[in-house]
Design a protein around this nucleic acid. Structure first.
Lengths: 232, 232
DNA sequence: ATATTACATTTTGAATTCATAATTAAGTCA
DNA sequence: TGACTTAATTATGAATTCAAAATGTAATAT
C-alpha cells in the first residue's frame, strides 16, 4: 500500500512509537471520540504505514488505557466513566502531592521564575475569560512543576493518568464559580512553590485535584444523563 | 515455523497479551537478567509463535519499563539503577499510602480475616526463617490490601511499578535486623487495618516503603560495586 | 600482530499474505 | 412483513516475506 497525499506521511524512527505519539493526542483531544471504533484502516492510510506498526501502537495505547482491544473485534477508544474518574483522580492527587514536595525541594530559580511567568500569563487569560488559553497554560504549569520535581517516572505516571482523564473535557465544564476557586488555588500553588513550602504545596495540589475531580464528575454526570435522554 | 516440543505452546486468546503475561514474570523473577538482550527468536520458538505477536508483546513490556527497545538493535531487559529506585519507591510509597486509606474505608470482614491469615502465615515463616515463603506471603499481603482498596487503576499502577522494582531482588538482601524491623512494621500494618485506621495505615505503609527503599539501595550499591570490581 | 576494509550472515522493521472470525447482505420460510 | 438461515464481504490475528540495518568474519594492508 502507498501513501496518497504524502503530507502526513511520517519520515522514520520507530514507526510504532511515532504512531503512538500521533494517535494519543487524537484520542486525548477527542478527534477520536470515546466509544468510537478506532479506524485502523483509515489511520494506516492517513499515516502511510502498514497494519503491523499500527497494531503495535494500538497495543501500547491499550496498555495506557486509552484504547480497549476486543479480541477479533478490533480496537475502541475507551470511555471515561464515573467509576474511572473516582479511581484515577485520587491517584493523581497523591502523585501531584508528591510532585509538589519534590518540586519544592528541587526546583531551580530559573524553573521557578518560568512557573511564575506561566502563572501570570494564566491570570491574564482568566481576566480575559479566555478559557482555551487558560487551560493550555494551566497544563503547562502542572507540567512545569512535575519537571521541577525531577522524577522521570513520576512525570510519566502522571501523564499517562492525566491523558486518560483529559478526555473528559473538564475545560468545557468550568462554571464561573469553580473557575474563580481554581484561580485562588493557583495563587496558593505559586505562593507555596515560591516559599518552597513542600508540605503546603502538596496539600494545596491534592485539594486542587479533588476539586477538579468534583468538577469533572458534575460534567460527566450531566453529559451521561443527556446522552441517555438522547438515546431513549 | 512450527512448535517443537508442543509443551509450552499456548492455546489461544490474544497471543500478544498471553506473551506479555508469560514474559513479564521471566523478567521480574530474573530468568531474563537485567542488561541481557531479549532473545526474540528463542522466545518465539519456546512459545511456538511467530515474531509478530512477540514483537507486539515487547512493545507493551517496553511501555511498562521492563524492556528497552533500541531501534534496529532489538530489545534489552532494563537494568534497575540507583536513580530509578530513588524515583520509583517514593511513588510506590505515595500509592501504597493511598491504598491503605482506601483499604481501611472499603475492606470487608472477609477480606480482613484473609489478610489476618496471611499475616499469621508470614509470621510463621519468619519464625522458621523461611525467607522465600516469607517473601511470597509478604507480596500476597500487599496485594490483598491493594485489592481491598477496590481501585483497579491503583492496583494496576502499583503492580507496574512494583514489577520494575522487584527485579532488584530485595529478598536476597534482608539483614536479620532489617527483617526484624519489617516484621514489626507488619504488626503495625495489620493492627491499623483491623482498627480501620486509614491515616495510621497510610503512614505505616509509607514508612515501610521508605525502609524497603533503603534496604534495596544498600543491596544495589553493593551489587553494583561488586560488578564493577569483576569487570575491572 | 593490529587495524581496516570488504563481504557474508544474521537480525530487525515493517509490508504483505493468508486463514479465521465477525459482520453484513441476500435469500428463505412462516 | 419479519424472524431465521445461509452465503458473500470485510476485518482481524498472526505467519510469512522481504528490504535494510547491524553484526560477524575473512582478507588485506600497514
Amino acid at each position: 500500500m502507498t501513501a496518497m497525499t504524502d503530507t502526513n506521511v511520517i519520515e522514520r524512527r520507530s514507526l510504532h512509537l511515532e504512531l503512538v505519539e500521533r494517535i494519543r493526542p487524537l484520542i486525548v483531544e477527542r478527534q477520536l471520540e470515546p466509544g468510537d471504533k478506532v479506524p485502523e484502516r483509515d489511520l494506516c492510510e492517513r499515516f502511510g504505514v502498514s497494519r503491523t506498526p499500527m497494531r503495535e501502537a494500538l497495543k501500547v495505547l491499550a496498555a495506557e488505557g486509552l484504547v480497549r482491544l476486543e479480541p477479533n473485534r478490533g480496537a475502541w477508544v475507551t470511555v471515561v466513566t464515573v467509576e474511572e474518574v473516582e479511581e484515577v483522580f485520587p491517584i493523581l492527587g497523591a502523585l501531584e502531592a508528591l510532585s509538589g514536595e519534590l518540586a519544592c525541594a528541587n526546583i531551580t530559580d530559573a524553573e521557578l521564575s518560568h512557573v511564575r511567568r506561566l502563572h501570570d500569563q494564566m491570570m491574564d487569560s482568566y481576566r480575559d475569560r479566555n478559557l482555551a488559553e487558560y487551560f493550555k497554560t494551566n497544563q503547562k504549569i502542572h507540567r512545569a512543576i512535575l519537571l521541577a520535581a525531577k522524577n522521570h517516572s513520576l512525570t510519566n505516571a502522571c501523564q499517562v493518568l492525566s491523558a486518560r482523564m483529559q478526555r473528559a473535557r473538564y475545560a468545557a465544564n468550568l462554571s464561573e464559580e469553580r473557575w474563580a476557586d481554581a484561580v485562588k488555588e493557583h495563587e496558593q500553588i505559586i505562593q507555596s512553590l515560591e516559599a518552597r513550602d513542600g508540605k503546603r504545596l502538596s496539600q494545596v495540589l491534592a485539594r486542587h485535584m479533588k476539586n477538579k475531580q468534583d468538577s469533572v464528575l458534575k460534567w460527566l454526570r450531566k453529559a451521561t444523563a443527556a446522552q441517555e435522554t438522547t438515546l431513549v
